[in-house]
Design a protein around this nucleic acid. Sequence first.
DNA 1: CGGCTATTTGACGAATCTCAAAGGGAGTGG
DNA 2: CCACTCCCTTTGAGATTCGTCAAATAGCCG
Lengths: 244, 244
Amino acid sequence: MTTPFKRFAAFAELTRAERSALQDLPGPPFSFAPSQVIRHEQDPVDGVYFLHEGWAMTSASFADGDRQILKIHLPGDIMGAPSLALDRAAETITAVTQVVASKVPGQKLGEIFARRPRLALLFFLAAQEERVALMDRLLVMGRRSAKESLAFLLLNLHDQLSKPDADGMRSFDLPLNQSEIADLLGIHVVHVNRMFRALESDGLITRSGKRITLTDPAKLQALTGLPKRRLARNIPWLPIDPIP
Amino acid sequence: MTTPFKRFAAFAELTRAERSALQDLPGPPFSFAPSQVIRHEQDPVDGVYFLHEGWAMTSASFADGDRQILKIHLPGDIMGAPSLALDRAAETITAVTQVVASKVPGQKLGEIFARRPRLALLFFLAAQEERVALMDRLLVMGRRSAKESLAFLLLNLHDQLSKPDADGMRSFDLPLNQSEIADLLGIHVVHVNRMFRALESDGLITRSGKRITLTDPAKLQALTGLPKRRLARNIPWLPIDPIP
DNA sequence: CGGCTATTTGACGAATCTCAAAGGGAGTGG
DNA sequence: CCACTCCCTTTGAGATTCGTCAAATAGCCG
């Protein structure tokens, strides 16, 4: 099992008590096969999901059946939180690879907020971080070409999970097919393929099977036109954990 | 001055003590002229802004100077919260019309989280609501045409602020010019104009000066392909306000 | 060796962008 | 009250990106 909620630790060092409170949050883990739906849009909402292992995605669909993928989730992510604000879920959560996930009941979130203001604020900041991620997606979708969107996606994944290879290059496995990438970028499969080959022939990436290597991350970053975001650290107004 | 944080009341009835705690949040109000920048991207972040009067917007820009508007803010909105998660602001906040706004220091947010878990959870839910709004924007940008995007925008504004007219129709004033709408939808000015005229000649809207009337909101909603979202109400796991 | 699915390629069409210029409307100074 | 200016809206024509349709190729699994 992955460290639950490791994302919070990015904002501040967690106390032992806080780490254990977070450990107690997720209910029993369940396994999901690739393509299996974890929660469907329009389901009633009574909590969020925690992703222990594997890749998952949230998506939403239109009346005409068209689909847009909203986010790719990696281990440690909280999934489905936006729908907490809603009457019925807006997002469908689906396993991309083999997945282990568990549910975090709203009840337990309420208790965290009641007893642990510092963790509560970290939950709040994590939600703001997700807003920034969505805003960046919106920026890229609104104003950049398909090639630049693809560069942006690959760069984000690269930053999160690429590890040094045998040959010293950093690379990562991409378990998404081009049709899923199309739904993620809001373009069409055929065009995704063209943009992959364009990035290849520009010498910015190399592919072999599912393995992707970014040969020039800096140039890709420049392509996106956006700066790298840095998370807040040592936030002076963070309350203190009242339970030692 | 507008009711501060009226958005929270959508999730649950606020106690008198909570309302007064919210009232105390914003610092002294400042006036801003149209186009005046309230906070610039890359500024250090030490709080959020509360919009008392007027329209404002948050936007972000690319290395090449291209701009995308992320959100239009109406009175009662909290502005700039996503950047709380960051080292430096990602979003520029600008007055659209004449604006009255004030700053809410992070310090005060920390105190609310420490003392008022119920309000803290409402802050959290409001952030999730904003995520849903961004997700819907992403859905529309990714998968719908320019005409449908414009329909979606007009519908959102209509739902928030149109009032019955002399002739029984509901309408609203739109203080954005077509160039701003272009930056909001991620399309180009000329095309915005063509789409306005297309919606007009479809008989879905009428315009006269800055005044917009949606003559067939239901058909516009169908155009977007998305359902109307309904906010959660009577959330059973909301903690109780400990201070009566 | 099939049979399946995903990737790749080509040709053509549609949506949107770009460039350029012509109207319209509101405010200003004469 | 008119002429002028500025900014915004509207229109037209041609270029580009991306979508659509169709089919060939490649990779994986049994």
